[in-house]
Structure formats: structure tokens, C-alpha cells
């Protein structure tokens, strides 16, 4: 089966700066993938190229088996919700109505329900909306379009927690009824973790992590307790980073732990905590500067 989105050797150069550097991955159809990474890592550029809004400097992008650039057959099955979307001088209702003309599977019912849930005033001009409301409008369009390829770029900038929960709930509910390929870039990693079947982490234009979320969970564990016990437990294991304050130490151990490991940790009075998706991502893009002088890295 051809992947819904297939990217091979993709690079994008802007005046000597490499925004995307030899990026390759496949995304299967009927999946929700998180595209994670720091600001300026290349997430938006990648999504714009997939949507055919931007052009690649090198490499190939195939969406539903064909090049997306100026390909009406592919583009008709795609919706791209952008954080920085420039809207015409529309009112909310008009924008939603206009969007419905372009999608054969458009759900008026879902659009109406979402508009109500987000409390979006239909008669208000889009340029008078707050940031969060503009984001909500993008989400309404992105979900109601029911497009085979649905791209969300930071869809919830400025959205309040209730509205974000509405987005997660509705995305999952609608996805269950109408499976499609969703690629979602976000900074709120742990919040979205429940949705994501797969995460791709991009840093300085390169994919540094591409894995199923289930495989990632439990892939690293934080071990903390007396320094001597931590040293004993971690000896011979790959350790990502250590943090020591006085006689207490905390270390991140890569790889899954088995029952024997857990029993041993309990005997040593060590506290085990699996790393969250967000911590894994932070690790993947390189840890921040050490906050304490005692910290050493292995």
C-alpha cells in the first residue's frame, strides 16, 4: 500500500540557510502523527512543502502517491490549517461557508456543532477575532473538511485549555468515524500525546526521532535516590543524563526495564519514573543548559 505521505531526501534552502536537510519519512494512511520540534526547527516549512505552498530545493514529496505541487487531484483531498493563516476580509460564517464549497465530504453538522462549542460568533469579522478564536476557526474548518490529508500547523495557538480539550475530543471522535491522515505540529506534547500514534521530531531541519508513541513509552526511565544506589543501579546501562544535588542523584536510563530491574530498584530504595513524551522529545533535540554545577553527562 502506498503511504499517504512519502518524503525522500527533502531539502529546502533559503539564502544559504538550510531549513530542511535531507528529510525522509513515510506516513501511512489513516494515522495521527505529531510533528514536534523547537521554534524554527522546520516544521512549518515541511508542512508547507507537503501542501504544495512552498517548493523543495531537492528531494521528493509524494502525497497519495503523486506530487502535490499544482496537482488538483491531490490538493482537492487536502486541508492545511495554519497558525498564521491570512484570511480574506470575511466574517466567520462566510469563511466556513466558503470552505464548505471546496470539500465534497464537508460536514455542515460538525461545523455547526464545533462553532457552537468554541462559541465563535458567526457575524464577527475574522480580523476582529482574538488569537484563540482565529485558531478555533481554523480547527472548525480543518475538522469539518474531512479531507483525506489533514495538516494542522500549531492549530491551537492562543486557545484556552477547555477549547484545546474540545479539539482533542472532536479530532478523536471524528477520526474514529472518518479515518484520515492527520499530521499535526505542536509544542504541547504531553497534552497531545494521547492522540498521537506516531511522533516525528525535527531539529535544525533534520528528523531526529521518528517512532510510534507506544514504542517510545517506557523507552527511558528516570531513576532517583541516594547517589550511591543510583550509581549501582545504572552501572553498565546507557545513561542519558545525570543530575546530582548533595547525596541525591537522578539519572535517566535508556531502554526498557524488566521486572527484575524494578525489584532491584525497590530494594535499593530508588524511585522510578518513566519519561513522558515531552521529556523524550526534549532529550531528542538536546538537553538545555545544565541548571546545577554538579550535573554531569554520560
Amino acid at each position: 500500500m502506498t503511504p499517504a505521505i512519502s518524503v525522500a531526501g527533502l531539502s529546502r534552502r533559503y539564502r544559504g540557510q538550510l531549513a530542511l536537510d535531507n528529510v525522509s519519512f513515510d506516513i501511512g494512511s489513516g494515522s495521527i502523527t505529531g510533528l514536534l520540534g523547537r521554534n524554527g526547527a522546520g516544521k512549518t516549512t515541511l508542512l508547507r512543502i507537503i501542501a504544495g505552498h512552498e517548493f523543495a530545493s531537492a528531494g521528493s514529496v509524494r502525497v497519495l502517491g503523486a506530487r502535490p505541487v499544482e496537482n488538483d487531484h491531490v490538493l482537492r483531498q487536502m486541508v492545511f490549517v495554519r497558525e498564521d493563516q491570512a484570511y480574506p476580509d470575511f466574517r466567520v460564517g462566510k469563511a466556513v461557508q466558503a470552505a464548505s464549497w471546496f470539500y465534497p465530504n464537508w460536514s455542515h453538522e460538525r461545523a455547526g456543532a464545533l462553532l457552537e462549542e468554541f462559541r465563535l460568533p458567526l457575524n464577527r469579522k475574522i480580523k476582529k477575532l482574538s488569537r484563540g478564536m482565529r485558531s478555533a476557526l481554523g480547527i472548525v474548518i480543518g475538522l469539518a473538511a474531512r479531507a483525506e490529508i489533514t495538516l494542522f500547523d500549531e492549530p491551537y495557538a492562543g486557545l484556552d485549555p477547555v477549547a484545546r480539550q474540545i479539539f482533542y475530543d472532536w479530532l478523536l471522535a471524528d477520526y474514529a468515524e472518518h479515518p484520515r491522515t492527520v499530521l499535526l505540529s505542536t509544542h504541547l506534547i504531553d497534552e497531545a500525546a494521547g492522540l498521537l500514534e506516531r511522533v516525528m521530531v525535527i531539529d535544525r531541519g533534520q528528523i531526529v526521532l521518528n517512532s510510534g508513541t507506544d514504542e517510545l513509552r517506557g523507552g527511558a526511565t528516570s531513576v532517583s535516590g541516594p547517589a550511591i544506589a543510583v550509581a549501582e543501579f545504572t552501572s553498565g546501562r546507557p545513561v542519558w543524563n545525570r543530575r546530582r544535588v548533595a547525596a541525591q542523584e537522578s539519572a535517566v536510563v535508556a531502554g526498557a526495564l524488566d521486572e527484575a530491574d524494578r525489584a532491584r530498584a525497590a530494594a535499593l530504595h530508588l524511585h522510578l519514573e518513566p519519561l513522558t513524551l515531552q521529556q523524550l522529545v526534549v532529550h531528542a533535540v538536546g538537553s538545555p543548559e545544565p541548571p546545577a554545577r554538579e550535573r554531569t553527562s554520560a
Binding site: 496537482n71 487536502m78 490549517v81 469563511a95 470552505a99 474548518i141
Partner: peptide
């Protein structure tokens, strides 16, 4: 810009 976001090609 909005038309392109809705999957309309430039052409």
C-alpha cells in the same frame, strides 16, 4: 492565501 489553504491549486 486562504484558497490555497483549502486545497485549491494556483492554476
Amino acid at each position: 492565501p486562504f484558497a490555497l489553504a483549502l486545497g485549491v491549486s494556483r492554476r
